[in-house]
Design a protein around this nucleic acid. Structure first.
Lengths: 149, 149
DNA sequence: TGAATTCCAACTAGTTTAGTCGGAAATATT
DNA sequence: AATATTTCCGACTAAACTAGTTGGAATTCA
Protein backbone atom coordinates (compact mmCIF):
# COMPACT_ATOMS: atom_id res chain seq x y z
CA UNK A 1 0.00 0.00 0.00
CA UNK A 2 2.99 2.29 -0.36
CA UNK A 3 3.58 4.70 -3.16
CA UNK A 4 6.74 4.01 -5.13
CA UNK A 5 9.62 6.46 -5.30
CA UNK A 6 8.01 7.86 -8.43
CA UNK A 7 5.19 9.45 -6.49
CA UNK A 8 7.26 10.23 -3.42
CA UNK A 9 10.21 11.81 -5.22
CA UNK A 10 7.85 13.47 -7.66
CA UNK A 11 5.94 15.31 -4.96
CA UNK A 12 9.18 16.36 -3.29
CA UNK A 13 10.47 17.72 -6.58
CA UNK A 14 7.25 19.56 -7.31
CA UNK A 15 7.21 21.07 -3.85
CA UNK A 16 10.81 22.16 -4.38
CA UNK A 17 9.76 23.87 -7.60
CA UNK A 18 6.85 25.47 -5.76
CA UNK A 19 9.17 27.03 -3.19
CA UNK A 20 11.12 28.60 -6.05
CA UNK A 21 8.08 29.53 -8.11
CA UNK A 22 8.54 32.81 -9.92
CA UNK A 23 12.34 32.72 -9.79
CA UNK A 24 12.93 31.44 -13.30
CA UNK A 25 14.09 27.96 -14.26
CA UNK A 26 15.54 25.66 -11.60
CA UNK A 27 17.99 22.99 -12.70
CA UNK A 28 17.38 19.32 -12.14
CA UNK A 29 20.78 19.17 -10.50
CA UNK A 30 19.73 21.62 -7.82
CA UNK A 31 16.46 19.87 -7.12
CA UNK A 32 18.16 16.49 -7.00
CA UNK A 33 20.80 17.74 -4.57
CA UNK A 34 18.35 19.50 -2.26
CA UNK A 35 15.95 16.57 -2.19
CA UNK A 36 18.68 13.92 -2.13
CA UNK A 37 17.49 12.08 -5.24
CA UNK A 38 19.51 10.55 -8.08
CA UNK A 39 19.65 13.18 -10.80
CA UNK A 40 19.29 10.75 -13.67
CA UNK A 41 16.39 9.01 -12.04
CA UNK A 42 14.63 12.27 -11.30
CA UNK A 43 15.08 13.13 -14.96
CA UNK A 44 12.74 10.31 -15.85
CA UNK A 45 10.16 11.44 -13.36
CA UNK A 46 10.22 15.05 -14.40
CA UNK A 47 9.85 13.97 -18.03
CA UNK A 48 6.56 12.42 -17.01
CA UNK A 49 5.54 15.57 -15.17
CA UNK A 50 6.39 17.61 -18.24
CA UNK A 51 4.28 15.41 -20.49
CA UNK A 52 1.45 15.85 -17.99
CA UNK A 53 1.96 19.60 -18.38
CA UNK A 54 2.55 20.11 -14.69
CA UNK A 55 6.02 21.57 -15.31
CA UNK A 56 7.61 23.31 -18.24
CA UNK A 57 11.26 23.22 -19.21
CA UNK A 58 13.84 25.61 -20.63
CA UNK A 59 16.58 23.85 -22.52
CA UNK A 60 20.24 24.76 -22.76
CA UNK A 61 22.58 26.57 -20.41
CA UNK A 62 20.79 28.48 -17.62
CA UNK A 63 17.81 26.30 -18.39
CA UNK A 64 15.82 24.22 -16.00
CA UNK A 65 12.27 23.55 -14.87
CA UNK A 66 9.35 25.62 -13.63
CA UNK A 67 5.81 24.94 -12.52
CA UNK A 68 3.46 25.22 -15.46
CA UNK A 69 0.68 26.62 -13.23
CA UNK A 70 0.62 28.59 -9.99
CA UNK A 71 0.91 26.45 -6.84
CA UNK A 72 -2.75 27.04 -6.01
CA UNK A 73 -3.73 25.26 -9.18
CA UNK A 74 -1.66 22.10 -8.84
CA UNK A 75 -2.98 19.38 -6.58
CA UNK A 76 -1.10 16.54 -4.97
CA UNK A 77 -3.54 14.24 -6.71
CA UNK A 78 -2.53 15.46 -10.17
CA UNK A 79 1.12 14.96 -9.36
CA UNK A 80 0.73 11.49 -7.91
CA UNK A 81 -1.63 10.24 -10.59
CA UNK A 82 0.61 11.43 -13.39
CA UNK A 83 3.47 9.40 -11.94
CA UNK A 84 1.75 6.42 -10.37
CA UNK A 85 -1.37 6.07 -12.43
CA UNK A 86 -4.84 6.05 -10.90
CA UNK A 87 -4.88 5.58 -7.14
CA UNK A 88 -6.77 2.85 -5.36
CA UNK A 89 -6.29 -0.25 -3.24
CA UNK A 90 -7.50 -2.78 -5.85
CA UNK A 91 -7.99 -3.03 -9.59
CA UNK A 92 -11.74 -3.48 -9.28
CA UNK A 93 -12.08 0.14 -8.10
CA UNK A 94 -9.30 1.51 -10.34
CA UNK A 95 -10.31 0.17 -13.74
CA UNK A 96 -14.04 0.61 -14.20
CA UNK A 97 -14.09 -2.47 -16.41
CA UNK A 98 -11.76 -4.71 -14.48
CA UNK A 99 -12.63 -8.34 -14.98
CA UNK A 100 -11.07 -9.37 -11.72
CA UNK A 101 -14.36 -9.43 -9.87
CA UNK A 102 -16.97 -11.71 -11.34
CA UNK A 103 -19.73 -10.12 -9.31
CA UNK A 104 -18.84 -6.42 -9.17
CA UNK A 105 -22.37 -5.42 -8.30
CA UNK A 106 -22.73 -7.52 -5.20
CA UNK A 107 -19.14 -7.62 -3.95
CA UNK A 108 -18.92 -6.36 -0.40
CA UNK A 109 -15.14 -6.40 -0.35
CA UNK A 110 -15.26 -3.98 -3.23
CA UNK A 111 -17.25 -1.53 -1.08
CA UNK A 112 -14.38 -1.48 1.40
CA UNK A 113 -11.84 -0.78 -1.34
CA UNK A 114 -14.10 1.94 -2.70
CA UNK A 115 -14.26 3.66 0.69
CA UNK A 116 -10.49 3.55 1.03
CA UNK A 117 -10.05 4.94 -2.46
CA UNK A 118 -12.49 7.74 -1.79
CA UNK A 119 -10.80 8.77 1.41
CA UNK A 120 -7.37 8.87 -0.24
CA UNK A 121 -8.71 10.82 -3.19
CA UNK A 122 -10.32 13.31 -0.80
CA UNK A 123 -6.94 14.04 0.73
CA UNK A 124 -4.82 14.24 -2.38
CA UNK A 125 -7.34 16.17 -4.48
CA UNK A 126 -7.97 18.76 -1.79
CA UNK A 127 -4.29 19.50 -1.16
CA UNK A 128 -2.50 21.92 -3.47
CA UNK A 129 1.15 22.91 -3.60
CA UNK A 130 0.04 26.25 -2.16
CA UNK A 131 -1.36 24.43 0.86
CA UNK A 132 1.99 22.74 1.30
CA UNK A 133 3.77 26.10 1.13
CA UNK A 134 1.49 27.33 3.89
CA UNK A 135 2.28 24.28 5.97
CA UNK A 136 5.95 25.04 5.46
CA UNK A 137 5.41 28.58 6.70
CA UNK A 138 3.69 27.31 9.81
CA UNK A 139 6.53 24.90 10.51
CA UNK A 140 9.15 27.61 10.05
CA UNK A 141 7.30 30.01 12.34
CA UNK A 142 7.02 27.35 14.97
CA UNK A 143 10.73 26.57 14.70
CA UNK A 144 11.69 30.21 15.06
CA UNK A 145 9.40 30.56 18.03
CA UNK A 146 10.95 27.51 19.64
CA UNK A 147 14.38 28.96 18.98
CA UNK A 148 13.75 32.33 20.63
CA UNK A 149 12.08 31.23 23.83
CA UNK B 1 -0.68 2.31 -3.99
CA UNK B 2 -2.52 -0.98 -4.41
CA UNK B 3 -2.74 -3.68 -1.84
CA UNK B 4 -1.23 -6.96 -2.96
CA UNK B 5 -3.27 -10.12 -3.35
CA UNK B 6 -2.33 -10.96 0.21
CA UNK B 7 -4.55 -8.26 1.63
CA UNK B 8 -7.19 -8.53 -1.07
CA UNK B 9 -7.57 -12.31 -0.98
CA UNK B 10 -7.19 -12.28 2.78
CA UNK B 11 -10.14 -9.97 3.29
CA UNK B 12 -12.25 -12.01 0.88
CA UNK B 13 -11.41 -15.19 2.75
CA UNK B 14 -12.16 -13.63 6.11
CA UNK B 15 -15.47 -12.31 4.86
CA UNK B 16 -16.27 -15.78 3.55
CA UNK B 17 -15.57 -17.20 6.99
CA UNK B 18 -17.74 -14.48 8.51
CA UNK B 19 -20.73 -15.46 6.38
CA UNK B 20 -20.35 -19.02 7.70
CA UNK B 21 -19.59 -18.01 11.26
CA UNK B 22 -21.13 -20.42 13.77
CA UNK B 23 -21.42 -23.29 11.29
CA UNK B 24 -18.31 -25.18 12.36
CA UNK B 25 -15.06 -25.44 10.43
CA UNK B 26 -14.96 -24.42 6.75
CA UNK B 27 -12.38 -26.04 4.50
CA UNK B 28 -9.80 -24.07 2.64
CA UNK B 29 -10.93 -25.82 -0.51
CA UNK B 30 -14.43 -24.40 -0.17
CA UNK B 31 -13.21 -20.89 0.51
CA UNK B 32 -10.77 -21.04 -2.37
CA UNK B 33 -13.43 -22.26 -4.78
CA UNK B 34 -16.05 -19.72 -3.74
CA UNK B 35 -13.59 -16.83 -3.83
CA UNK B 36 -11.74 -18.06 -6.91
CA UNK B 37 -8.30 -18.15 -5.29
CA UNK B 38 -5.52 -20.72 -5.65
CA UNK B 39 -5.92 -23.11 -2.74
CA UNK B 40 -2.20 -23.52 -2.12
CA UNK B 41 -1.65 -19.79 -2.17
CA UNK B 42 -4.55 -19.13 0.16
CA UNK B 43 -3.01 -21.69 2.49
CA UNK B 44 -0.06 -19.37 3.01
CA UNK B 45 -2.28 -16.41 3.70
CA UNK B 46 -4.51 -18.20 6.15
CA UNK B 47 -1.42 -19.45 7.98
CA UNK B 48 -0.55 -15.81 8.59
CA UNK B 49 -4.09 -15.09 9.75
CA UNK B 50 -3.87 -18.04 12.11
CA UNK B 51 -0.60 -16.84 13.61
CA UNK B 52 -2.26 -13.45 14.07
CA UNK B 53 -5.02 -15.31 15.94
CA UNK B 54 -7.72 -14.00 13.67
CA UNK B 55 -8.76 -17.53 12.65
CA UNK B 56 -8.46 -20.90 14.34
CA UNK B 57 -8.08 -24.23 12.63
CA UNK B 58 -9.29 -27.79 13.13
CA UNK B 59 -6.98 -30.38 11.63
CA UNK B 60 -7.85 -33.67 10.00
CA UNK B 61 -10.89 -34.88 8.09
CA UNK B 62 -13.96 -32.63 8.52
CA UNK B 63 -11.56 -29.97 9.74
CA UNK B 64 -11.17 -26.47 8.44
CA UNK B 65 -11.06 -22.89 9.62
CA UNK B 66 -13.24 -20.62 11.73
CA UNK B 67 -13.10 -17.03 12.89
CA UNK B 68 -11.36 -16.82 16.23
CA UNK B 69 -13.61 -13.92 17.34
CA UNK B 70 -17.13 -12.82 16.48
CA UNK B 71 -17.39 -10.69 13.31
CA UNK B 72 -18.09 -7.57 15.38
CA UNK B 73 -14.65 -7.87 16.93
CA UNK B 74 -12.54 -8.28 13.80
CA UNK B 75 -11.68 -5.15 11.85
CA UNK B 76 -10.57 -4.86 8.26
CA UNK B 77 -7.50 -3.10 9.62
CA UNK B 78 -6.42 -6.09 11.67
CA UNK B 79 -6.81 -8.39 8.69
CA UNK B 80 -4.93 -6.17 6.27
CA UNK B 81 -2.12 -5.32 8.65
CA UNK B 82 -1.53 -8.93 9.57
CA UNK B 83 -1.04 -9.76 5.90
CA UNK B 84 0.48 -6.60 4.46
CA UNK B 85 2.26 -5.11 7.42
CA UNK B 86 1.62 -1.57 8.61
CA UNK B 87 -0.30 0.59 6.16
CA UNK B 88 0.94 3.91 4.81
CA UNK B 89 2.03 5.65 1.64
CA UNK B 90 5.69 6.07 2.60
CA UNK B 91 8.22 4.58 4.99
CA UNK B 92 8.65 7.82 6.87
CA UNK B 93 5.13 7.51 8.28
CA UNK B 94 5.20 3.70 8.62
CA UNK B 95 8.43 3.16 10.55
CA UNK B 96 8.66 5.70 13.31
CA UNK B 97 12.44 5.62 13.07
CA UNK B 98 12.83 5.50 9.31
CA UNK B 99 16.06 7.12 8.26
CA UNK B 100 14.72 7.95 4.83
CA UNK B 101 13.89 11.53 5.71
CA UNK B 102 16.81 13.55 6.99
CA UNK B 103 14.54 16.26 8.33
CA UNK B 104 11.47 14.45 9.61
CA UNK B 105 10.45 17.35 11.79
CA UNK B 106 10.20 19.94 9.09
CA UNK B 107 9.23 17.81 6.08
CA UNK B 108 6.05 19.07 4.50
CA UNK B 109 5.76 16.14 2.14
CA UNK B 110 5.63 13.94 5.18
CA UNK B 111 2.55 15.82 6.38
CA UNK B 112 0.76 14.83 3.20
CA UNK B 113 1.69 11.18 3.65
CA UNK B 114 0.55 11.35 7.26
CA UNK B 115 -2.86 12.67 6.23
CA UNK B 116 -3.27 9.93 3.66
CA UNK B 117 -2.25 7.31 6.18
CA UNK B 118 -4.67 8.66 8.75
CA UNK B 119 -7.58 8.65 6.35
CA UNK B 120 -6.93 5.06 5.27
CA UNK B 121 -6.56 3.95 8.87
CA UNK B 122 -9.84 5.64 9.73
CA UNK B 123 -11.63 3.54 7.15
CA UNK B 124 -10.05 0.18 7.81
CA UNK B 125 -10.09 0.44 11.60
CA UNK B 126 -13.74 1.48 11.75
CA UNK B 127 -15.00 -1.33 9.51
CA UNK B 128 -15.61 -4.75 11.04
CA UNK B 129 -16.58 -8.01 9.40
CA UNK B 130 -20.03 -7.49 10.97
CA UNK B 131 -20.33 -4.20 9.08
CA UNK B 132 -19.54 -6.04 5.89
CA UNK B 133 -22.20 -8.64 6.64
CA UNK B 134 -24.70 -5.81 7.06
CA UNK B 135 -23.62 -4.34 3.73
CA UNK B 136 -24.21 -7.74 2.19
CA UNK B 137 -27.72 -7.83 3.65
CA UNK B 138 -28.48 -4.43 2.19
CA UNK B 139 -27.24 -5.49 -1.23
CA UNK B 140 -29.29 -8.67 -1.14
CA UNK B 141 -32.44 -6.81 -0.11
CA UNK B 142 -31.94 -4.32 -2.88
CA UNK B 143 -31.44 -7.09 -5.41
CA UNK B 144 -34.63 -8.84 -4.32
CA UNK B 145 -36.54 -5.57 -4.45
CA UNK B 146 -35.28 -4.93 -7.98
CA UNK B 147 -36.30 -8.43 -8.95
CA UNK B 148 -39.87 -8.15 -7.75
CA UNK B 149 -40.85 -4.77 -9.19
C1' DT C 1 33.47 27.52 -29.40
C1' DG C 2 32.63 25.58 -24.95
C1' DA C 3 29.97 24.79 -20.98
C1' DA C 4 25.66 23.87 -19.13
C1' DT C 5 21.57 21.80 -19.44
C1' DT C 6 17.49 19.25 -21.11
C1' DC C 7 16.05 15.24 -23.81
C1' DC C 8 15.97 10.33 -25.12
C1' DA C 9 16.49 5.28 -25.30
C1' DA C 10 18.37 1.26 -23.74
C1' DC C 11 20.20 -1.63 -20.13
C1' DT C 12 20.32 -3.90 -15.32
C1' DA C 13 20.74 -5.82 -10.47
C1' DG C 14 17.83 -6.76 -6.95
C1' DT C 15 13.32 -7.32 -4.91
C1' DT C 16 8.61 -8.52 -4.81
C1' DT C 17 4.57 -10.89 -6.35
C1' DA C 18 1.84 -14.58 -6.96
C1' DG C 19 2.02 -18.38 -7.08
C1' DT C 20 3.57 -24.04 -7.51
C1' DC C 21 5.33 -28.47 -5.68
C1' DG C 22 5.94 -32.27 -2.63
C1' DG C 23 5.14 -34.26 1.35
C1' DA C 24 4.44 -34.74 6.67
C1' DA C 25 1.12 -34.75 10.50
C1' DA C 26 -3.49 -35.01 12.44
C1' DT C 27 -8.17 -36.60 12.60
C1' DA C 28 -12.85 -38.55 11.28
C1' DT C 29 -15.02 -42.28 8.99
C1' DT C 30 -15.50 -46.95 7.54
C1' DA D 1 -6.57 -50.79 11.15
C1' DA D 2 -6.91 -48.65 6.84
C1' DT D 3 -8.29 -44.83 4.23
C1' DA D 4 -9.69 -40.40 3.02
C1' DT D 5 -9.63 -35.80 4.26
C1' DT D 6 -7.61 -31.89 5.74
C1' DT D 7 -4.23 -28.76 7.88
C1' DC D 8 0.70 -27.74 8.25
C1' DC D 9 5.41 -26.79 6.52
C1' DG D 10 9.33 -25.52 3.69
C1' DA D 11 11.48 -24.97 -0.54
C1' DC D 12 11.29 -23.53 -5.25
C1' DT D 13 10.17 -20.31 -9.41
C1' DA D 14 8.67 -17.37 -13.51
C1' DA D 15 7.39 -12.93 -14.35
C1' DA D 16 6.93 -8.29 -13.20
C1' DC D 17 8.39 -4.26 -10.95
C1' DT D 18 11.59 -0.99 -8.67
C1' DA D 19 15.03 2.05 -8.59
C1' DG D 20 18.07 3.09 -10.65
C1' DT D 21 22.61 3.50 -14.34
C1' DT D 22 24.83 4.46 -18.79
C1' DG D 23 25.81 6.88 -22.90
C1' DG D 24 25.00 10.17 -25.88
C1' DA D 25 22.21 13.70 -28.82
C1' DA D 26 20.10 18.31 -29.03
C1' DT D 27 19.67 23.01 -27.38
C1' DT D 28 20.99 27.38 -25.60
C1' DC D 29 23.78 30.92 -23.07
C1' DA D 30 28.20 33.32 -22.46
Amino acid sequence: MKFSTKGRYGLKAMFDLATHHGNGPITLKNIAQRQDISEHYLEQLIATLRRAELVKSVRGAQGGYMLNHPPEEITVGEIIRSLEGPVGPADCVIDADSDECRNQESCVTRLVWARIQESVNDVIDSTTLADMLEDQERINNKKNYMFYI
